[in-house]
Amino acid sequence: MKLTLHIWRQEQGASTGAMHTYALTDIPEDMSFLEMLDLLNEQLMKQGERVIEFDSDCREGICGQCGMMINGRAHGPLKHTTTCQLYMRSFKDGDTIYAEPFRAAAFPVVCDLKIDRSAFDRIIGAGGYVSVSTGQAPEANSIPYAHETAEAAFDAAACIGCGACVATCKNSSAALFTGAKITHMALLPQGQTETAARTQKMVAQMHKEHFGHCTNTEACEVECPQQISVLHIARMNYEYNKASLLHK
């Protein structure tokens, strides 16, 4: 297929960026979107131009390193699919495609389509863990918990930290990311002890990083590659209120 691409180019964080237009022909439909960009980069190199910088690593939808806005949608037209798992069969001959970085005050652009998501790491560092050091663990089967609890905790823990939830949110809120980690930990007996303090610290960090507030639009759940449920945001709010009432 033949495509027209409009891609955001920005030398570095401080410089101003702009959309640039490129044309591609003979794109097979079993090519992935990122392989299509690889091909475009090869062409740019032949013309002596700097390649388009974009992030990807595993290319199988699990590491969370890829991610861009494609035609205005985080990770492109498919629901629950990372950019690297998007194949060209989702487009048709003659299409025009717009690719831009995920945009949020908390995710500054590094170069072209690459952004800085270290704010997520700092939210985890604020309390997204069980305070257990190596050597302290009791025998694994000494604290049984239900199959359903494990499955529910897994659903929350499956987050890949790609940032699509933030990018798609009109408020650039990190509520889904933060809520998922709080729920994961709060569901498990191992994590419960610290729930109140964890919730307060993680929410405070989220605000410090300039993520917006959640206004329950629920767009994040639609884009999330792991289908993380917005109910985790409700859970976070519940835990936060409980902590504020009981622990101040």
Partner: peptide
């Protein structure tokens, strides 16, 4: 160790 950290292994 992993269970103590909150790894949700299948049960």
């Amino acid at each position: 160790q992993a269970v103590a950290q909150g790894v949700p292994f299948a049960r």
